[in-house]
Design a binder for these strands. Structure first.
Lengths: 350, 350
DNA sequence: ATTAGCACTCTCAATGGGAGAGTGCTAATC
DNA sequence: GATTAGCACTCTCCCATTGAGAGTGCTAAT
């Protein structure tokens, strides 16, 4: 790629972004020249700033203000200037330590990851619990509750649990239910929703089992779709401290966005295929509602089986380096957790 | 109780609160006298207002402003003035309709209740999923995953599901696991965490089962404590529109409160014993952080077995009548849902 | 007991001006 | 040719001032 910025312009842009991210106020030429990194006068810096503005990397809110980065500027920063920072050792250790305490509980691990991420980046964090793209039936159980009601409990291969209540016309005793469940488990084992739905059943099958089949298909289907209900959202209160949300309109916009499901889910495709951390800045978003915020997110989990999404949402003025390294570190960590649980060749138990 | 307010004062206080709740601006004597309910002059109203202020039911933000209710005023309103409104039929029907679509899924029902409540009262709503105060083991399952890893799935009598991953030194085949699980289910059935922990086990029990027992005790114990992770919080963005949160400090305070677990959980005891809807207003709260907001909440569920808490949180300027009737209606509805699922004599299945 | 009238107080919005910030340009310097 | 000092210029932001308006409490009349 032909790089249209010279060394000085790059240095100025980098310093400007770092300073603006830190202070949230337009950065003046004096402030940049004052630092030790740039051994030139404010006037020289001003020339560079004028160049950068002409090229669209920075903008000036008004005549007598300093400059602030444009979305294009941030993009350049992320692409060429920030490098690939990693989280400081000390922080890594703290995180590891906290994770050790919940190591084998997926729910808690995702929750913890969300809250850690929010605190690390001082922005809102969102984590979806991991789920299979195409869950398979591992096991189901029929438990008699009272009278004609039976609870159907489903365990998927990825460890997901769901249940459904079934009501029958006649009462069943647990004995009979267990027999039916045993047969069903034999027949339905390891099938996906689609496979199970398409399965040809012998005509002499117990009617109960036919009914159970239908329910299982429904439950497996529901596991397939990305459920947003259990999404972990953390650090909303961090956002409030950001100066860009001083005006309540923007804050409201943001909260609406975080409360609504659709927009968050629309981010999922962005990381579906690719590996690594994705950064989406301001007007790069397809949705209008997100035009003035940025998102840093990554997929985590075992490729193709169980996986989820972890990310940071905040104003475009965001510590991208820190965000990227935090997201990367935590997504790797979650992947490890999942690997420990579901990893290695999943045994196809008889 | 000797009622220290006369008829006119009561009428004035009621009107004032209704108006203030609606408009969020201090209410002047003229505004009250203008309405059709009070057939007196502003001057007369002013006298009543002066009385009410002296008695502490209302306060004046500054000399040339109208009056606003004090916490004591709200309390009086809730106790004596607002009556027992019920939700309009039309709204009841809309709610019923929406509930019909998720009738038998507890998770979704609680989530739906939270979001409906938030919208009904235009404030933040919080709903804890139902859980047993003392859960009993209904059934557990041991599922081989890979190599030495085994997933322990627990179903409690109230339908709650949990799981835990166990790692053993030696590999087990599913056959062996099932045998052990069957024996365990026979022995441990219907026990609480405490009972299971205290259970005397014969010395010839498989060591695996001893290990499982320990895990089961842990899992049951965790079900017992009110988990806040899965708490449904809805309507945060509703709060932003409230004028009292125009200053970001107060909004931040509120968000902190809603994000933190401890304070929300501290409300649970308030409804633990009692039945019916509880209202806690401003400085009636024990926690400083909640001094300028009000809470309307109720227990729902089957007494003594599965139950949860549903409530509204907002500024003290809150439509108490509507809040109380909404909370009552939704808590009854949730109770019905639970009753349908777990209700009637739970069968002690063999 | 109620009410009209009125003086009084306090807030709130608008106004205007001045200080300060930061720039772009020009001419001088290295 | 790149850098820099100097300076005029522009625009925002803060502050003090001011006046209108809102709402009251009090007093005297009904």
């Amino acid at each position: 790629m032909v790089d249209e910025l010279n060394e000085r312009q790059r240095a100025v842009l980098r310093l400007l972004i770092e300073q603006y991210v830190a202070t949230a106020r337009p950065v003046a030429s004096d402030a940049l020249a004052a630092g030790p990194q740039l051994q030139v006068s404010p006037a020289t810096v001003r020339n560079a700033l004028a160049d950068l503005e002409r090229a669209g990397y920075i903008v000036q809110p008004h005549t007598s203000a300093g400059r602030i980065p444009s979305d294009k500027g941030y993009r350049y920063f992320v692409e060429h200037l920030m490098g690939t920072a990693t989280l400081p050792q000390a922080e890594q250790r703290t995180i590891d330590h906290q994770f050790h305490q919940v190591e084998l509980d997926v729910e808690e691990a995702t929750h913890l990851a969300a809250s850690l991420l929010a605190r690390l980046v001082r922005n809102a964090a969102v984590v979806t619990p991991p789920h299979s793209t195409v869950p398979r039936l591992k096991h189901f159980q029929l438990l008699g509750l009272a009278e004609t009601r039976v609870m159907l409990v489903l365990v998927a291969q990825d460890g997901a649990l769901t249940q459904q209540l079934l009501t029958f016309d006649e009462a069943w005793d647990q004995e009979g239910l267990s027999v039916v469940a045993a047969e069903g488990n034999r027949r339905f084992h390891n099938l996906t929703a689609a496979e199970l739905g398409a399965l040809e059943l012998p005509t002499d099958l117990p009617p109960l089992l036919v009914r159970v089949r239908t329910s299982l298909v429904g439950l497996l289907g529901r596991l397939e779709e990305p459920t947003v209900a259990r999404l972990y959202r953390e650090g909303l209160s961090q956002l409030i401290d950001q100066p860009e949300f001083r005006e309540t309109d923007r804050l409201k916009q943001m909260l609406d966005l975080l409360e609504g499901d659709t927009i968050l889910l629309s981010l999922v495709p962005a990381v579906q295929g690719r590996d690594g951390v994705q950064v989406i800045i301001g007007d790069e978003h397809s949705s209008d509602q997100m035009r003035n915020c940025s998102v840093v997110l990554a997929r985590y989990g075992l490729s193709d089986t169980v996986n989820g999404v972890i990310g940071v949402i905040g104003p475009t003025r965001m510590p991208y380096g820190r965000a990227v390294s935090s997201v990367r570190y935590l997504s790797d960590l979650l992947t490890n957790v999942l690997d420990q649980i579901y990893g290695v060749s999943p045994r196809t138990d008889a």
